[in-house]
Design a protein around this nucleic acid. Structure first.
Length: 801
RNA sequence: GCGGAUGUGGCGGAAUUGGCAGACGCGCCAGAUUUAGGUUCUGGUGGGAGACCGUGGGGGUUCAAGUCCCUUCAUCCGCACCA
């Protein structure tokens, strides 16, 4: 009978649906396994071939875990708020809600056509008011705990989206989404104090099983550095405080630099003699975006402040103060002490402005190059620090500063607070009311969800306000506290809000009284295995860890970390090895593959394509190999025989394959698991027949990868029930070991021959046999045997002289 | 500049972590089946006529190196004046 994948796949997809085969059990006595993949943004383009790579991987894990007796939660939902939908809505004059519905319907159909074992009864959608009610609720809790605040600040402003972007959303100076120019603009924004969690976000990485590069990337992003804050007195009254990681070099500070935005410049205006020059520099600096400032201004520029000097607290020396845009207001204190001898930037600046360079750590040639090594070298020209090593000097100077009241130890982070406002319609409304008397007042929890009003125009206003600002009847309300007329917050939340906690909602998606029931949360958290893209490491993954820690602090969740294990899949590239994109014309549509080869082949190929964690180019030829493999599997229907037809060799091959596949799936090595099954099939073909027990084992092993064909073959062979209700095969360790092995015979490390021997042959016996071989004996003639290395089951190496 | 990876046949990729390099698949070659093409099946397939040579290049450690050490080159990704 022909392998008609199309009808087989439809048949089983319907059956699974009708029977709710993959519905998660409420039996909390069973061991649980929570498998999670990043839920997609339902874009108008439909599913990309990249999506199924992640989904298939954890579908394989989920299906295997179910067969192993776990209660598995493998859910799917929609991260549906966001700009592309809104832009499409504006352009085509369709409500974003409708656009979302259409896109979701398409995605869902595509996902179902691939046979994923999602529990669709747990489906969620971030744009559903019953969902975002809880997104808003979490925001109110953050507000209540002072972790949400409003602040006037320079923000990244996308000129095309007319919207604020988080730092993370600005890539190379342009908007990550639309590619338009991003400029700086001062606006009042809602912020979340993620910085308050910086230390815990670093430390708790020790307790989770994330792939190393994710941990490293998150740590780098948070950017912890330990140093000291030091107060410099000035000839103006104010102390100028700096942050430095090298307090040990304090004696070498020959000038100071303030950021052009430093508030002291205004304050000191009457003491500064060259205000015009400074103003001009500020204007220049302000014109540049952050990108230009860092990208183009490698040559140091700046202006010396005339009329105010600073005093180095360690030696009382008067030193000049400059302003320069290489010092950022947003990091540390907005001012630095400059030690040109031991910092490359300070060195460049000192050279440009002809400032003195004083060596305080010996070991370099500081007149020609900054000496930044901290591991070697001892302090010089540094008074009481002389002779100490850098680490000792750090300790000593911090002690001294603390004692003298001139400074203290200090930790700084690169991580900034999270800009949480968007001037857009299609997002969760921020549930805050602004009252002239009471300030920012939270909307009463009972009022949630605070829904979006239906409006005709979703365009942001020219002055950058949210479209909601135009809806008077929505904006105007009363203060929940004092009852006076008040105005609603018109900004909405960023797309990251809904995805920061979605894995909790899957647990109990229809709960009206809480994010999820306590019992369910206690059972299901943390997520056991979360797979997603590397691009979400510093955005979604960090944000959701932050929210989860907050929810832990307020007693909503029982675990400090949301995800016990995090892995990441590589990209699927176009056939030409480049990233798939419309403009490159190398996009592969998953629908076409499913139509031409079937879902099982598609799934198999995406897993066989290469190392799961690395990117790999698509190949139309390669997919044929997987299609052929399934055809060969299917053909076994005709090779099926009754009774015990085991050859011992084939039996061992089975046990080895069970072991390999079982282990490989856990280790993300899907490609080699499939290769092992292919090799086993080759062995079966050599035998020419297969008995029922072997057949059963084979199709169960293959089932997680190719669920439709294996269910069909299960049914055709007359096994009981559905395959997905059976058990994962076990193996006998003893039967994975061969009795006879081929070992390599080496003379001086070069292979001269191979020999089949009993696996447990002794070295002496083996040596005796080997030395008499025709291929070996002449080579030993007249030589002295220095030693013999024998590695059981591997090789024997005779070293001669 | 800093951080992270990667480099193995014509191609995608394996290699139990120091022990027979190239599993598995694609492609290719030959044979069988077929009127033929396609499909399918069987066999072969790193290079070299050979001794031998082969995991980006060079050096080293070792009985033994894709794997460890030093050095160098190339490509990709992330961050980027973070004091």
């Amino acid at each position: 009978m022909e392998y008609n994948f199309s009808s087989i796949e439809k048949k089983w997809q319907k059956k699974w649906d009708d029977n709710q085969t993959f519905k998660t059990s409420d039996d909390y006595s069973k061991p649980k396994f929570y498998a999670l993949v990043e839920f997609p943004y339902p874009s108008g383009q439909g599913l990309h071939v990249g999506h199924p790579r992640s989904y298939t991987a954890l579908d394989i894990v989920s299906r295997k875990k179910r067969l192993q007796g776990y209660n598995v939660l493998y859910p799917m939902g929609w991260d549906a708020f966001g700009l592309p939908t809104e832009n499409f809505a504006i352009k085509n004059k369709i409500h974003p809600k409708i656009v979302t519905e259409n896109n979701v319907a398409r995605f869902k159909e595509q996902l179902k056509s691939l046979g994923f074992s999602f529990d669709w009864s747990k489906e969620i959608n971030t744009t559903d008011p019953e969902y975002f009610k809880w997104t808003q609720w979490i925001f109110l809790k953050l507000f209540e705990k002072d972790l949400a605040y409003k602040k006037e600040m320079a923000v990244n402003w996308c000129t095309s989206c007319k919207c604020v972007l988080a730092n993370e959303e600005v890539v190379n100076g342009v908007c990550e989404r639309c590619g338009s120019e991003v400029v700086r603009k001062v606006k009042s924004q809602w912020m979340l104090k993620i910085t308050e969690y910086a230390e815990r976000l670093i430390n708790d990485l020790d307790d989770v099983d994330y792939i190393e590069r994710v941990k490293i990337q998150q740590k780098n992003w948070i950017g912890k550095s330990t140093g000291a804050e030091v107060d410099f007195t000035t000839t103006a009254e104010d102390k100028l405080t700096v942050f430095t990681t090298r307090p040990d070099t304090l004696f070498g500070a020959t000038y100071m630099v303030m950021s052009p935005e430093h508030p002291y410049l205004e304050k000191w205006a009457d003491k500064i003699e060259n205000n015009d020059e400074i103003k001009a520099y500020q204007v220049e600096a302000n014109k540049k975006s952050d990108f230009e400032r860092t990208e183009l201004a490698k040559d140091k520029t700046g202006v010396c402040i005339k009329g105010v000097k600073a005093i180095n607290p360690v030696n009382g020396k008067e030193i000049p103060i400059y302003i320069s845009d290489y010092v950022l207001m947003s990091y540390g204190t907005g001012a630095i002490m400059a030690v040109p001898a031991h910092d490359t930037r300070d060195f460049d600046f000192a050279k440009a402005f002809d400032l003195p360079i004083i060596e305080v750590v010996a070991g370099g040639d500081v007149q020609n190059e900054a000496f930044t090594d901290v591991a070697t070298g001892k302090l010089v020209n540094s008074g009481f620090l002389d002779g100490l090593e850098v680490a000792e000097a750090k300790k000593a100077i911090i002690e001294w500063l603390t004692k003298e009241g001139l400074g203290k130890e200090k930790v700084n982070y690169k991580l900034r607070d999270w800009v949480f406002s968007r001037q857009r319609y299609w997002g969760e409304p921020i549930p805050i009311v602004h009252c002239e008397h009471c300030g920012y007042v939270p909307v009463d929890e009972k009022e949630l969800p605070l829904k979006l009003p239906d409006i005709d125009s979703y365009e942001p206003t020219e002055n950058g306000e949210s479209p909601l600002a135009n809806i008077d009847e929505w904006v105007n309300t009363t203060c929940p506290k004092c009852g006076a007329p008040a105005k609603r917050e018109t900004d909405t939340m960023p797309q990251w809000a809904g995805s920061s906690w979605y894995f909790l909602r899957y647990i109990d998606p229809t709960n009206k009284d809480a994010i999820a029931s306590k019992e369910a949360i206690n059972y299901w958290t943390p997520v056991d295995w979360y797979n997603g893209g590397m691009e979400h490491t510093t955005l979604h993954l960090l944000y959701s860890r932050f929210w989860h820690k907050f929810l832990y602090d307020i007693g909503v969740v029982p675990t400090k970390e949301p995800y016990a294990k995090r892995t990441s899949h590589g990209m699927i590239l176009g056939e030409n090895g480049e990233k798939m994109s419309k403009s490159r014309g190398n996009v592969v549509n998953p629908d076409d593959i499913v139509n031409e080869y079937g879902a099982d082949t598609m799934r198999l190929y995406e897993m066989f394509i290469g190392d799961f964690e690395k990117s790999a180019p698509w190949s139309q030829q390669g997919i044929k190999g997987c299609s052929r493999f399934l055809e060969r599997i299917w053909a076994l229907n005709d090779a099926l025989v009754e009774g015990e037809s085991y050859s011992e060799k084939l039996e061992k091959a089975f046990h080895k394959t069970i072991k390999k596949v079982t282990e490989d799936i856990e280790q993300l090595k899907f490609n080699t698991a499939i290769a092992a099954i292919m090799a086993l099939l080759n062995d079966i073909y050599k035998a020419g027949k297969i008995n029922k027990a072997e057949f059963k084992t084979l199709i169960v092993l293959l089932n997680p990868f190719a669920p439709h064909i294996t269910e069909e073959m299960w049914e055709m062979a007359g096994f009981e029930g559905m395959l997905n209700q059976t058990e994962w095969p076990s193996y006998d360790e003893a039967k994975t070991v061969d009795n006879e092995v081929e070992i390599a015979i080496q003379i001086n490390g070069k292979i001269k021959d191979k020999l089949v021997v009993a696996a447990d042959i002794s070295q002496a016996d083996c040596e005796a046999v080997v030395k008499e071989l025709d291929s070996v004996k002449p080579l030993l003639d007249g030589k002295q045997i220095v030693k013999v290395i024998y590695v059981p089951k591997k090789l024997i190496n005779i070293v001669v002289k």
